[in-house]
Design a protein around this nucleic acid. Structure first.
Lengths: 134, 134
DNA sequence: GTAACTGCAAACACTTTGCGAAGCA
DNA sequence: TGCTTCGCAAAGTGTTTGCAGTTAC
């Protein structure tokens, strides 16, 4: 990260697109949204800004067991559900377990900084489609 | 997956390398191990066989929030710790929560098939190095 | 003025895939 | 014999990076 970050048009646009966007978009989805408003914006700029905003904790990067990373405007600790059919990401109601970041029992010396819990399966819509198809 | 899978030299070699190997190697590490015994083996073959063996549940694919996938000869459900300095993967002693695969409370319609919990931080060795460096 | 940032394109890391030859059942 | 698998190389996906020009402060 540079010492002084600046407020550029592109950065403001990307932050605006993320604010209040609870769809957990991928970098490419943000790129498409951004391009609709600012056609000259480049993919590199979107990636760079998403990385910078994550580093500044203004958004959260969500790495998935399948496919590209997603980004979340909600930086509160919470867990996600990934549908392996439509690849949408959903928030879960599972309570965040702060205790998992404490030294895991029986693993002295390990310093946990963060943890990731992801459920993978089918969302209601895709589960219904699956049923119909069978 | 094909209807009938065969027992080839390469597949047997890769399975042998995985059996009793608790170091959670990446595909590339398996490739290097395999090449030491069978120099003509190709990367594609290693990837194909690791995928096939995972599909057959003879090994387990571990997707990490950083870096390439790892593979585990232990197919029992358990959780892992990733050191973000040396990128080694360790088994944790955290009890597997079967209940997370039940319908998450308050999320009717979602069908969870599996879940992944990964702790990220520093292993004892890298934590010690970090301390020294500071 | 100058460090931070941009667009662009090339490079990168990891993985999959198309093909013709070889091998297992 | 016929389907599976192989080695090889090329392509695919998602992301980062070097560069020369531009912009914020």
């Amino acid at each position: 990260m540079p010492q002084n970050t600046r407020s550029t048009q592109q950065r403001r646009l990307i932050m605006e697109l993320m604010e209040g966007n609870y769809s957990h978009p991928t970098a490419d989805e943000v790129y498409e949204l951004a391009r609709a408003k600012e056609p000259r914006i480049s993919r590199g700029t979107v990636y760079r800004n998403l990385n910078l905003l994550s580093d500044e904790n203004k958004i959260r990067r969500l790495s998935m067991p399948i496919g590209p990373d997603h980004f979340d405007c909600n930086t509160d600790n919470h867990y996600h559900f990934l549908c392996h059919a439509c690849f949408h990401v959903f928030d879960t109601n599972i309570k965040y377990k702060e205790s998992l970041n404490a030294d895991p029992a029986g693993m002295p010396g390990f310093k946990t900084e963060w943890h990731r819990l992801i459920l993978v399966g089918l969302c209601p819509e895709c589960a219904a489609k699956e049923k119909k198809g069978t």
